[in-house]
Design a protein around this nucleic acid. Structure first.
Lengths: 206, 206
DNA sequence: TTTTATACTGAAAACTATTTCAGTAAGCTG
DNA sequence: CAGCTTACTGAAATAGTTTTCAGTATAAAA
């Protein structure tokens, strides 16, 4: 998936959203054409078909029957979004935020949303003494550089991700659980990939 | 201004909003008619004219050219809010959600927002073994009836609120902390006021 | 180099939606 | 009780929209 949308189609999607926000209803095909200087409704329709095929809009064959999907809203308005994507599994290889990895969107405060963050469901009890329980949602900042004692999401030797305290050494990294029945582990720098620093937590109680 | 809108018109406005929320675009006059069993488009149009005259909608004479105004949107946002109020202190006397008590608004998922919930900053370590730490935000459902072992916000004898496990007895209530260095307390029913059941938790890490 | 995707033109058919015209009937208001 | 509002019916004119058909041109991928 090199480039999901052409510049033209991104522009059309953006105008679609703007129009809905401003007027309260979507534009017609002809109105889109007028705005973009496309004389034939068919020219516009091609773009709409393309946008629909890629899941950015949904159409019903009625007047102004265009709906913006969540995918589009999140993609275009990442900087203004008030949600972060919930990733299903953090594993080696594919980029974390690949579309097929994203299972939901989690509402967060604006300052979190504008960082490059994602959410992750915690599995296991390794951080229980830090108040992080099995099933909790961890909000993770991808861009922040981890510092000593930060809670990080780490990929160890291409395995699936774990959440641990981060203790850097001169030539190695110690990943320390917050659970006295588990032991800290030490790794060479090339064995560990830090996928982000935990900045927030959400829990559904019961 | 006794009654701005008739029941019929309120229903039509509500459906208008619902339709836009669901489908992404307003219904046509004929669709409104079909939904409300009005055979003639003119019958529906009368209502739309009335709604427009009173400032609830704006119309452009194009297909689905209906916009919900802010006046009506107050309605819309009540049902689809995505925040709950953060209350400064929960104390006896004034209602929890009195305006002067509200210090902020916290983003939550839609299903939480539509319950009658509020957020509260936890003070102290009394629930630390339940993974609830000093400074965490607790999202509290006001309407849910507490059951045994629920985490509740309780007002004891007109003091300020505490967060505890709820264990009802036949003629008394036990409020049990999740901290083995603290002791459970037992109160008469008239000494305790339950202000809600914890349904979610949010934490800013560091 | 053939195929595929992008990005359109132009026109007409088919359909959808609003507006207008002409009424009816019940209930409330002064 | 006349006048106004609410709440409609029914039909036709008019306007707005989508869909279909038949192409063109360019660039990128197989």
């Amino acid at each position: 998936m090199a480039k999901e949308l052409t510049a033209r189609r991104r522009a059309i999607l953006a105008y679609l959203i703007e129009h809905i926000q401003e007027l309260g209803y979507p534009p017609t095909i002809a109105e889109l054409g007028a705005h973009f200087g496309i004389a034939s409704t068919n020219g516009v329709n091609d773009h709409l078909v393309a946008l629909e095929k890629r899941g950015y809009i949904e159409r019903s064959s009625k007047a102004r029957g265009i709906r913006i999907t969540e995918k589009a809203a999140v993609n275009l308005y990442r900087n203004h979004a008030s949600t972060v994507p919930l990733v299903g599994r953090v594993a080696a290889g594919a980029p974390i935020l690949a579309d097929q990895n994203i299972t939901d969107h989690i509402p967060v405060s604006a300052d979190i949303a504008k960082r490059n963050a994602y959410a992750l469901r915690v599995r296991g009890d390794s951080m229980i003494e830090a108040g992080i329980f099995d099933g909790d949602l961890l909000i993770v900042d991808q861009e922040r550089t981890p510092r000593k004692r930060d809670i990080v999401v780490a990929l160890v030797e291409e395995e699936e991700a774990t959440v641990k305290y981060y203790f850097p050494g001169s030539d190695s990294v110690e990943l320390r659980p917050a659970n006295s029945s588990l032991t800290p582990m030490r790794y060479r720098l090339d064995q560990v990939q830090i996928q982000g620093v935990a900045i927030s937590l959400q829990r559904q109680i019961k």
